[in-house]
Structures are given as C-alpha cells and as structure tokens.
C-alpha cells in the first residue's frame, strides 16, 4: 500500500490519465437526443479517437449518457442502471430536458432536473446538442477526470439519503433493491 502523499499523487495522475482515455459509454437513449449518438460514434465525428466507445452492459460501462427527458417510469430504470455500474462511473446529462425540463417543463410525467436524482458530472446543453457539442462535453469530462474533479459517484454515496428522498418523491411505490456499497 502506498502511504506517502507524493507517490499517491503520481498514482492518481497515471490512473486518471488511463481512465480519461477509455470512456466506455452506456447510452441510455431516452428522449429524442439519442439520434445524435450514431453520428457522434461513426466516421463523421468519430468519437473513438477520444477513447469513447459504446459498452454493452452497465457493469462494463464508465459513463452513463442520458440523452433527454426522463419520465418517472424511465427514471426508475436509469437509477437501477446507475447503481449497477461499477466505479469509476460518470453521468452526462444531454440536452436541455435533463437540465431544466426543456420543452417538457410542464409535462405531468417527466422530471425537470436530473441532478436532483442522480449526480451529473457534465451537462451538455442544446435541444438537441450537435455532435460537436457532444464531443466538447466528452472533452470537458476528460478534463475533469484528469483533474480528479469528476466525483459524482462519491457525491452519490455520501449523500445517498438526499438522493433517495428525492427519488422516492417521484417514484411512490419503491420496489428497488437496496445495495450495500
């Protein structure tokens, strides 16, 4: 175990460097924004040159990409997906619907601010954001990871009660497993 501070720092730098260059995303395609993911991933914008690739399952993914409005019904699944992901994990909120409700601000069935329910590391605004802004969002996330500031997962663990309280407010019948991390 490394105890002294300086060598921990070096390990952190190397670890963060490695993490930021292999972001496997789980694209949770809610809302309309998911349509911008294919152009981002394919040859025109080629996100893979930043190390961004699709992952098949939550347990293999690092980034949860939420691409638009979330109904309360979907939110349930998203929370579950997020809790199944392993550390390190990051959340990107994509589109104005995740930020302030977007044009679904008065809908009876969609949440209006994603960061009340899940810790969001980076928001990409726009309705919908173009692939350039998606890439800019990923670049920003990489920057935060390198600086050690993308600590949404830690925030979630520490403030779990607050998040749970908000989640249970919009999901009245709570039938979710309790994880013990």
């Amino acid at each position: 175990m490394i105890n002294d501070k300086n060598s921990q720092k070096i390990v952190d730098i190397i670890r963060n460097y490695a993490r930021k260059h292999s972001l496997w995303i789980l694209a949770y395609g809610t809302g309309c924004g998911a349509i911008e993911i294919p152009p981002t991933m394919t040859s025109r914008y080629d996100a893979e040159r930043l190390g961004v690739r699709g992952a098949a399952t939550p347990r293999q993914a690092d980034v949860l990409l939420i691409t638009g409005y979330l109904t309360t019904k979907t939110l349930k699944r998203v929370i579950r997906v997020y809790e199944q992901m392993q550390d390190p994990k990051y959340v990107i909120g994509f589109g104005s619907c995740t930020i302030n409700g977007g044009m679904y601000w008065d809908s009876y069935n969609t949440i209006k601010a994603l960061d009340r329910y899940l810790p969001v590391d980076v928001y990409i605004n726009g309705c919908m954001p173009r692939p350039e802004s998606v890439l800019a969002g990923f670049a920003k996330l990489q920057e935060l990871i390198q600086a050690g500031k993308a600590d949404g997962a830690k925030k979630y663990k520490e403030n779990l009660e607050w998040y749970r309280e908000n989640q249970k407010k919009v999901i009245p019948t709570w039938r979710m497993p309790e994880y013990n991390w």
Partner: peptide, 18 residues
C-alpha cells in the same frame, strides 16, 4: 380539467431561471 402545469409544478422540482 386536469391541470398539467400545476401538477408538474407541485410534483417535480424546477430549476430557477425560467
């Protein structure tokens, strides 16, 4: 007669700024 706007305002937290 279901008031969507009031329902949404009461149920979901809204970020200030709109």
């Amino acid at each position: 007669d279901f008031d969507t706007e009031t329902y949404a305002a009461e149920t979901y937290w809204e970020r200030p700024g709109r």
